[in-house]
Amino acid sequence: MCIKGKLTGKNMSGKVKLHYFNGRGRMETIRWLLAGAGVEFEEYFFETREELIKLQQSGVLLFQQVPLVEIDGMKMVQTRAILNYIAAKHNLYGKDLKERVLIDMYVEATMDLNDLIMRHPMQPPEGREKNLALIVDKATNRYFPAYEKVLKDHGQDYLVGNQFSRADVQVLETILMMEEMKPDILAKFPLLQGFKARISNIPTIKKFLQPGSQRKSKIEEKMVPQVMKIFYG
């Protein structure tokens, strides 16, 4: 459900509510994790800078920043804190402390790569090709070889503990975004190819990948000025 509306004073429905602009940004990984956990959510979009400022002035943004997620009676901010909460609540965060730290290692790395991908459309046109080459280099020589090695070393279907976790969700999200930039990005990573196929077929993930889901499309160049105006005026 996609709604352009006001922040509710009290979440009467109990459904998770997301407040962000109508695009990927830092909210997209939260959407992915909720979807992977099978949690339904509503979305409230701000479309202008004035609407964002009004949200900031409402007092609900602890650090004057979005994403904002209404969940379990809380108004949560800070992307990583939100993701940690969702993962822990829905048993996607490992079965013990050692598994959790592995999950943290893997997701922190993929979020570093995500940040590069997210900022790419904002690069000046003359530097975009060089920036793309940098992202592809980091994916193929730093991040994806590490995940390939993890899968090879333990020989299991999932990245941690042989059970579905937030690491699987977030690495798949990054793989698919990289494939949008370079379709053959997994050519040298056969285990990640198999991983992608397995995780994509988990029912909750498969549903999220279908047309018409709340998954957002990559930002087009023509959308960049609007997004920049919303966040930076």
Rank of each mutant, 00 (worst) to 15 (best):
K75W: 12
M76E: 14
V77R: 05
I82D: 01
I82V: 14
I82Y: 05
I82C: 03
L83I: 13
Y85T: 15
I86A: 03
A87F: 05
A88T: 09
H90K: 11
N91P: 06
L92H: 06
L92E: 02
K95M: 10
D96Y: 05
D96T: 07
L97N: 04
L97T: 05
E99D: 06
L102M: 11
I103A: 03
I103D: 07
M105N: 00
Y106V: 03
A109H: 08
T110L: 00
D112H: 11
D112S: 10
L113N: 08
L113M: 12
N114I: 07
D115E: 05
L116G: 13
M118H: 12
R119H: 07
R119V: 09
H120L: 15
H120D: 11
P121K: 06
P121W: 08
Q123S: 09
Q123L: 11
P124Y: 00
P124D: 00
P125Q: 06
P125C: 02
E126Q: 12
G127L: 04
R128M: 12
E129K: 08
K130V: 09
N131F: 15
L132W: 01
L132Y: 01
A133C: 03
A133G: 02
L134I: 14
I135H: 04
I135Q: 03
V136K: 09
D137R: 15
D137S: 13
K138I: 13
A139D: 04
A139V: 08
T140Q: 15
T140I: 13
N141P: 00
N141C: 00
N141I: 00
R142I: 13
F144R: 02
A146V: 10
A146S: 10
A146K: 12
Y147L: 09
Y147C: 02
Y147Q: 04
E148N: 00
E148F: 00
K149C: 02
V150L: 02
V150F: 01
L151Q: 04
L151C: 05
K152M: 04
K152N: 05
K152E: 06
H154T: 13
G155L: 06
G155W: 09
G155M: 04
Q156G: 12
D157T: 15
Y158A: 05
G161H: 10
N162H: 13
N162M: 11
F164L: 15
S165G: 11
R166G: 15
A167D: 02
D168L: 02
V169E: 02
Q170P: 11
L172C: 00
L172N: 01
E173Q: 14
T174I: 11
T174K: 07
L176C: 01
M177C: 08
M178E: 01
M178H: 07
M178S: 03
M181S: 08
K182L: 14
K182R: 12
K182D: 13
D184I: 07
D184S: 15
L186D: 12
L186F: 10
L186Q: 07
F189N: 07
P190C: 04
L192H: 00
L192C: 00
G194Y: 06
F195Y: 04
F195S: 06
F195Q: 08
K196L: 06
K196G: 02
A197R: 06
R198D: 13
I199C: 14
S200H: 11
N201T: 13
N201V: 09
I202L: 15
T204F: 04
T204N: 14
K206N: 13
F208H: 11
F208N: 04
F208V: 09
Q210L: 15
Q210Y: 10
P211H: 03
P211M: 01
P211Q: 02
